[in-house]
Nucleic acid binder design. Structure first.
Length: 433
RNA sequence: GCCCGGGUGGUGUAGCCCGGCCUAUCAUGCGGGCCUGUCGAGCCCGCGACCCGGGUUCAAAUCCCGGCCCGGGCGCCA
């Protein structure tokens, strides 16, 4: 049995005077002549490898002098407590093995002494992802997903996977990516919406899905992607208020878990998390129009809120908030209109500032009303037969929402561009890497 | 898709308005040298760039046209 590998972050008092095995990348080299410092980086942090010429084997000293930044090395050495070392400990190597030499020059500076533009960073994303600040985003993303799964499971939701290759191009609204499916035409799914509703008809009662959604819109903004991850739930025997409650408790839980378990990564990112208070503020669509109007952004009743209007509203309201009671005509066909006021519906958007994080609604569960709404939206019920059938044989009342994972993360971390939170983002012009 | 602003060494920038003084600035990096406590190490020497195509002109990084790409704003986003 070989020696156990240690993370750089694990080096502490108990290791002083002991030999450790480390793996990682050469983050920096500081060569003072008779004394060389290597900063070794692994995914958990850094440790200084110190080579006083007279205290390390000559061949090891020569390797350290010749090494290039970002090369991958293995180090076996003795831990020394040293106040002058960053972090208070350093390793005096007995052996350094270069496992793979990095070519020069590097496409990016991992040390971030010189900034790089996002586009350049994405072109060389593997290198960009080595930066602790960038890596931290994905460690937090991991925690967010863990929390979502755990919370929803605790709440009785069953995790499901619905098809991403679908036949309907007739849902209206967003553009779909066409693909060829043997002799048939097919599309990449824009949302699990119809399938998760069918699962309500299948008696699952509470389901959630975390999966990709694809939208062929030619949008060119800092908050849109052509491939994104959607966190979706659907829940039977409840209404829009019921699922809004699940949503706000989920958001709070995610913030709590990240604050508790990602301290180091938040620190790398220099982010202070504030746990949002619940319940979130609720404003109606009409009130939203009022605020926008007061700030000089007038929107005709019935229309969706424009970006400048959302910015105006976002400036006014602190933290997370819901916009509720939307005009029925501004929302998809499956949103449930109020019985006593059918021009508005039981649908909601979850906002943070001007950013829409989630949207949802109580859904129509009555077959006749649904067919009527599909027709009213200019769509053909025939192409929805696979969906509508589930509504003829005992569909329970139900509600649900879809939450954009990337939007949640970018708003949580205060990032300006949604591409920052995606490993390999897909946008209008980017298909590689 | 529309409007505005951009594209200069590996990376980030100055220069462009007002063409020549640009064999193009600075930082970082890279190569070499000095240096035993660096931690954005320091000092010395060196290396490396004007997005593509066309045009105007004695002369284009700089002006004009087209293309591609990037940024910001907006639109689109059942």
């Amino acid at each position: 049995m070989g020696k156990m590998r240690k993370w750089t972050s694990e080096i502490g008092e108990e290791d002083v005077g002991k030999e450790v095995l480390l793996f990682g990348w050469v983050h920096e080299v500081r060569d003072l002549g008779g004394l060389v410092f290597l900063i070794l980086r692994d995914r958990e942090g850094f440790i200084q490898i110190t080579l006083p010429k007279k205290k390390v084997p000559p061949e090891t000293f020569e390797i350290a002098k010749k090494i290039h930044r970002e090369s991958v090395i293995k180090v076996i050495g003795v831990v020394k407590k040293e106040p002058k070392a960053p972090g208070g400990y350093e390793v005096i190597p007995k052996e350094i093995e270069v496992l793979n030499e990095a070519a020069v020059p590097l496409p990016l500076e991992v040390t971030e002494k010189v900034p790089a533009e996002l586009d350049t960073r994405l072109d060389h994303r593997f290198m960009d992802l080595r930066k602790p600040k960038v890596h931290a985003i994905f460690r937090i993303r991991h925690q967010v997903m863990q929390s979502v799964r755990q919370f929803l499971s605790e709440e009785g939701f069953i995790e499901v996977h619905t098809p991403k290759i679908v036949s309907t191009a007739t849902e209206g609204g967003t553009e779909l990516f066409p693909i060829s499916y043997f002799e048939k035409e097919a599309f990449l799914n824009q949302s699990p919406q119809l399938y998760k509703q069918i699962l309500m008809g299948a008696g699952f009662e509470r389901v959630f899905e975390i999966g990709p959604i694809f939208r062929a819109e030619e949008h060119n903004t800092t908050r849109h992607l052509n491939e994104a991850i959607s966190i979706d739930i659907e829940m039977s025997f409840t209404d829009h208020e019921g699922v809004m409650n699940v949503l706000e408790r989920l958001i709070r839980r995610v913030y709590e878990d990240v604050a508790e378990n990602c301290e180091k990564f938040l620190e790398w990112l220099n982010v202070k998390l504030e746990i949002p208070e619940i319940p979130f503020e609720r404003i109606t669509y009409d009130e939203a129009l009022e605020i926008a109007k007061r700030k000089g952004e007038e929107i005709p009743w019935g229309e969706d809120l424009s970006t400048p209007a959302l910015k105006a509203i976002g400036e006014e309201i602190e933290g997370h908030y819901f916009i509720v009671d939307w005009p029925t005509e501004s929302k998809p066909f499956y949103a449930m209109p109020y019985e006593d006021k059918p021009e508005i519906c039981k649908s909601f958007d979850l906002m943070k500032g001007a950013l829409e994080l989630a949207s949802g609604a109580q859904r129509i569960h009555k077959y006749d009303l649904l067919v009527e709404r599909i027709k009213r939206c200019g769509l053909s019920p025939e192409s929805f037969e696979f969906y509508l059938e589930a509504f003829r044989y005992g569909m329970p009342p139900h509600a649900g929402w879809g939450l954009g994972a990337e939007r949640l993360l970018m708003s949580m971390l205060g990032l300006k561009n949604i591409r920052e939170v995606v490993l390999f983002p897909r946008d209008r012009n980017r298909l590689v890497p």
